[in-house]
Amino acid sequence: MLNDMLALIRYSVPGARAEEFMEQATSILGTLSAQTGYRSGHIGRSVDEPGLWALVSEWEGAGFYRRALSAARMDMYPLMTLMINEPSAFEVLVSNP
Rank of each mutant, 00 (worst) to 15 (best):
L6M: 10
G30V: 05
L52C: 06
L52I: 06
N85A: 15
W59L: 06
L2W: 04
S40E: 02
E49A: 08
M80C: 00
R66H: 06
E49W: 11
I28D: 05
L8R: 06
M22C: 04
W59V: 05
Y11Q: 05
L69F: 08
G51I: 04
E20Y: 07
A62P: 01
G61L: 08
P97I: 11
L55A: 12
G51N: 09
E86V: 01
I28W: 04
W53L: 13
T26A: 15
I84V: 13
L2G: 06
A25R: 03
M1Y: 06
R10D: 14
G63S: 08
A7R: 09
P14W: 11
A62F: 05
G15D: 06
Q35S: 04
R39D: 04
Y11C: 07
F64V: 03
T31M: 02
S70M: 14
I43W: 01
L93M: 14
N96D: 00
G41V: 01
A72R: 04
F90Q: 08
G15E: 11
Q35Y: 02
S12E: 12
M1A: 14
A7F: 08
L8P: 00
A62K: 09
R10Q: 13
P14F: 12
Y65A: 11
S27D: 05
G15L: 15
A18D: 05
A72N: 01
A16L: 15
S95T: 14
T26R: 05
M76T: 00
T81V: 03
G41D: 06
S95Q: 12
E91N: 11
A25G: 01
N3A: 13
L52F: 13
T36W: 05
L52M: 12
I84L: 14
L52V: 09
T26Y: 02
L82Y: 11
N85Q: 14
M80P: 00
P50I: 15
G44Y: 04
V56C: 12
A34K: 11
M1S: 08
A25F: 03
W59Y: 12
M5W: 05
A54E: 04
S27E: 10
L93Q: 13
I28C: 03
F21R: 01
N85I: 15
V47M: 09
T31R: 08
I43C: 13
A68S: 05
N96M: 10
H42F: 12
E20D: 12
S70R: 11
L69I: 07
L69M: 15
W53R: 04
N3R: 10
L69Y: 05
S70Y: 03
P14T: 01
S57R: 05
M1Q: 06
V94F: 14
L93I: 11
E60Y: 04
A34T: 03
R45Y: 05
G63C: 07
R39K: 15
V13Q: 02
S95H: 13
V13L: 10
T81H: 14
A89C: 11
E19Y: 06
F64K: 14
S70F: 09
T81M: 10
S46Y: 14
A71C: 06
D4F: 07
V47F: 07
N3T: 09
I84T: 00
G51Y: 10
L79P: 01
E91T: 12
F90T: 08
Y11V: 02
F90V: 08
A68T: 01
L6F: 10
E86I: 02
S88L: 02
G15A: 15
R17C: 13
I9H: 10
G63P: 03
V92I: 15
Y65D: 09
H42V: 07
P87T: 13
E58R: 15
V13C: 10
